[in-house]
């Protein structure tokens, strides 16, 4: 029997080329940063990154599921804000303070908004990008009209959320400061495992791949497109709702007009992880690596002596080159096998 690599044994599949490529970029980048600035190599940096990146990591999982189903969703940040903010407001109106309640309300609202996306996409056969552009504005606009856009600073943020944001799994004390691994890490892990389980271990998850692979074939063998799409967009909405609470809790600051505008960045991160817009393809590891790259640039360019204003330049370049490599290969392959593709 041939020897299998550690990766194969752990993941039961070979590593995709995009994953290898991203891993290489991450390693090279880390080496460069570490050489330039050894301070980078600290648990503090790692814990910081985990804490700051956990929100977008959760969103990225939702994006991945949507991309695998062959769609593209740009409304998830709006859903995160709308469900997070609405549930906090609801709790304030009801006059009590319970983390579980706020999370539950947020994920329910998130899933409900996601189902609106799914219904529009399914019944009117509309391009998913344009539908979700529309719903993003509509959802957020409606929230702003109904609830206003009042911000809450740490004093007004519900105590349970503040506690949630500062809960740590493990705290390491150093000479002068102490840093801790946020509880968010556990939640992200749970979400990753849940997504993996849903996608790879449930029939519903397999139908997501199936409709992304070939929607017509899927309906021919009796897969309900509506049911699968409802699942896809509700799940994305569910994760967004969860992220909304994590986001507000982590910042200890509730601003209902934040976050929106970062959706394309998160989609980009998932896309360089190897998820194709044409559906059926994409891996969780790829999405995780993509988010790690975004997060690395966001939090470590300082170590290179570059300000935060260089983030987009770095990420944009990496994104462009990655996409270039990925699609140029596809192009050569198509040329060879005489596939006259029109993207």
């Amino acid at each position: 029997m041939q020897r299998r690599s550690l990766f194969r044994r752990a993941f039961d599949r070979p590593m995709t080329s995009m994953e290898k490529y991203l891993l290489a970029i991450i390693l090279v980048y880390i080496v460069i940063v570490a050489v330039k600035n050894p301070q980078f190599f600290s648990l503090e940096t790692l814990f910081d990154m985990i804490r700051n990146g956990s929100g977008i990591m959760i969103l990225a999982l939702g994006v991945l599921v949507v991309l695998i189903s062959g769609g593209i969703d740009v409304s998830f940040t709006a859903i995160a804000i709308v469900s997070g903010y609405t549930s906090v407001r609801l709790m304030k109106v009801l006059g009590f303070d319970n983390l579980l309640f706020v999370i539950l309300v947020a994920v329910v609202i998130g899933a409900a908004l996601g189902s609106i996306n799914a219904l529009l996409i399914h019944f009117f056969r509309l391009p998913t990008l344009i539908v979700t552009l529309g719903t993003a504005s509509a959802f957020h606009g409606l929230m702003a009209i109904v609830l206003g856009t009042k911000t809450y600073t740490a004093i007004d943020v519900p105590q349970s959320m503040l506690d949630f944001g500062s809960t740590s799994l493990l705290t390491i004390s150093a000479e002068r400061s102490q840093y801790s691994l946020s509880v968010f890490f556990l939640i992200v892990l749970a979400c990753i495992v849940l997504t993996w389980f849903l996608l790879y271990r449930t029939m519903l998850g397999r139908t997501v791949f199936a409709i992304g692979s070939n929607q017509e074939s899927a309906s021919r063998i009796g897969i309900s497109l509506l049911r699968t799409k409802l699942f896809v967009y509700c799940y994305s909405g569910f994760l967004s709702g969860l992220m909304g609470i994590i986001y507000f809790s982590g910042l200890s600051y509730i601003n209902p007009v934040s976050l929106i505008g970062t959706e394309l960045m998160i989609i980009a991160a998932v896309v360089i992880g190897g998820a194709k817009l044409t559906g059926g393809e994409g891996t969780i590891l790829g999405a995780v690596l993509g988010i790690i790259i975004v997060q690395l640039f966001q939090s470590t360019l300082v170590f290179l002596g570059l300000g935060a204003s260089w983030n987009n330049l770095f990420f944009g370049s990496v994104l462009m080159v990655s996409l270039g490599v990925m699609y140029y290969r596809q192009r050569q392959l198509n040329k060879r096998s005489l596939v006259f593709s029109s993207n």
Binding site: R206, T207, S213, N214, E216, S217, I221
Partner: peptide, 14 residues
């Protein structure tokens, strides 16, 4: 009407 990204076993049994 097969699913190119899924395995042989999955295509047959799904």
């Amino acid at each position: 009407s097969l699913f190119g990204h899924l395995s042989v076993a999955e295509n047959i049994a799904v």
